[in-house]
Every structure is written in structure tokens, then in C-alpha cells.
Nucleic acid binder design. Structure first.
Lengths: 147, 147
DNA sequence: TATTGTTATACTCTATAACTATA
DNA sequence: TATAGTTATAGAGTATAACAATA
């Protein structure tokens, strides 16, 4: 492929990817289960804590690509529900270290099952090749999100 | 792959895809160019009109996966800027048919170039195989959004 | 009556600016 | 001074409920 052909292809991708991402996000939000305790944003934070262990609030904000005041708000919600606890950083007491509680871990497990039920069913209807494409695409989407 | 293995894989996909979509959307929103006339939501509507021709407001709402009042609001913004015009449906005068104006078409062209600049550059740094994965993934994302 | 779209209203998420506590 | 996080406040986007016009 010539460099100018690559540019055209990138232009097509760059035009369609944001719209696809926006539409799919709205679809996923609509599929929210009414019994869920956690919003999708809160679930992302809980999942990050489950995966990476305790994290400073600023690190969570960077990872989720929101500003610190937005993450303060999300962590407030999680803390009020007893899903996380805050403690000051050991070496730097300005930091706020966020930890997932046992209740948070269990709620994450239950809510995640509810929330992904619809999507898992749809994915199950795809053939193996299409699932493989999506599996390969996710790290690329995450990489673009981090770029 | 056994059916239970497929279920596990789907569970992994179903867990990671929503978070990746959410993070990438936030990244894309942050990349907004200050000179853009159109929000990303408004651009999606203008792009749908460019691609499909005139559409009823309800059809636009369905396509973008928002409720009619939300689409009314987006179309109001587009109309106030002179980017679209409304007219009553010919066979059913309850409908509101939305048309892209010449100004809308030109603004879409310019804003799209601005907005996709960052993404196109990132995509250009991927190798051809990764771009192909993303190209293949987009129709799947759209399909999931429509499901 | 049923449907298409609008108006009124409220909620969620996010940001910027100003502030507090610590480094 | 500079940095990590919080508080105060505002804006964007979305939804539900009630309404108007048309079928």
C-alpha cells in the first residue's frame, strides 16, 4: 500500500471509528441493569482497583482519562456505598490511596455479570473469526485511548 | 474451541470492550478542536444526513441511539447554526424531515478534517495489520450498537 | 386512539477555577 | 513554590413525563 493510500484509509478509519465508539457506548449505557449498584464509570474504577491493586486518586484519573475533580466525585460515590476506602499515601501524605473493599469486590462481580450479560450473548452469536477481530482490536482501542 | 471456552472468551470480551469504548470516547472528546463549530454528536447527525440523505427526526434518533427529545435538541443546535433545515414530511406531516444545507456540508468537511487529524496521525503510526484489525472491527462495533 | 415530535424539567458526567494540605 | 486532592460552580448531553399536531 502506498503512503497516500494509507492516508486515505486512515481518513476513513479516523472518520468512522469515533462515530462507532459513540454509538456503541450509548447502546451499552442503555443496557444498564436497573438493579446495578455501580455506574459504568464506577465499575471501571473498581475494575482498575481489582486488577492493579490500590491506586492513588490521580493515577485513577489518568487511567480513566478524566480530571481529578471528576475522579473525586466517582470515588465519593464508591466510598459512600462502602465499595472503596480512602487512606493517605504512606510516603506522600498528599496522595489519597483508594482500596477496593470486600463488598466492592463482590458487588463488582455481581454487577459485572449483570451488565455484560447482554453483550456476552451478542458476542456469542458472532463466529470465532469475528470474536478474534474484536479481541485483537481491544488492545488497539486501549492504546489509542492512552495515546 | 469448546462452547465453554467460547463463553469464557466472551466474558473477557464483554468485560473489557465496554471499558475500552468508554476510555477511547473520553480521549476522543478531549481531542476536540476549539475552532470546531459542531459537537461530536452534531457531527454524527450531519454525517448521517450526508451519507443517507434527508431523514426524519425519529429515524435519526434511532440511528444515533438517543431518545427523540435528545435528537430534537441536537437538531435545534444544527438548525440555529444554519447547518440543517426542517420541513414537514410529505406523506405524513407529523414527521420532521431534516436536510443538510450547503453550509452544513462544508462545515462538516472542515470540522471532520480538524477532528480526525489527531486520530489519523495515531492510526498512521500503526502497522498495516493493526489498521486492518481496526477496519474489520468497526463494522462489528456498529453491528453491536444496532443489536 | 396511536404516533411524531416538542416542551418542561431533572439527572449524570465532566470540566475549570479557587482553595487546602503537604512536599 | 509546586503538587495532590477537594470544593464550588457551570456546561454538555441525556432521559422521562406531559403536551400538540397529525394520522
Amino acid at each position: 500500500m502506498s503512503s497516500s493510500e494509507a492516508l486515505v484509509m486512515d481518513a476513513g478509519l479516523a472518520r468512522t471509528l469515533p462515530l462507532a465508539v459513540m454509538r456503541l457506548r450509548r447502546r451499552l449505557l442503555n443496557e444498564r441493569h436497573p438493579d446495578n449498584d455501580l455506574s459504568l464509570g464506577a465499575m471501571a474504577v473498581a475494575a482498575a482497583l481489582e486488577h492493579h491493586g490500590d491506586m492513588a486518586l490521580g493515577a485513577l484519573a489518568q487511567r480513566e482519562r478524566v480530571r481529578p475533580p471528576s475522579m473525586t466525585r466517582t470515588v465519593n460515590c464508591l466510598e459512600e456505598g462502602g465499595y472503596v476506602v480512602r487512606r493517605p499515601g504512606e510516603t506522600d501524605r498528599r496522595q489519597v490511596i483508594v482500596s477496593l473493599t470486600d463488598k466492592g469486590r463482590e458487588t463488582l462481580r455481581v454487577d459485572r455479570a449483570r451488565r455484560t450479560e447482554w453483550l456476552a450473548q451478542r458476542l456469542g452469536q458472532l463466529d470465532e473469526a469475528d470474536r478474534a477481530i474484536l479481541s485483537d482490536a481491544i488492545p488497539l482501542l486501549e492504546m489509542l485511548a492512552r495515546a
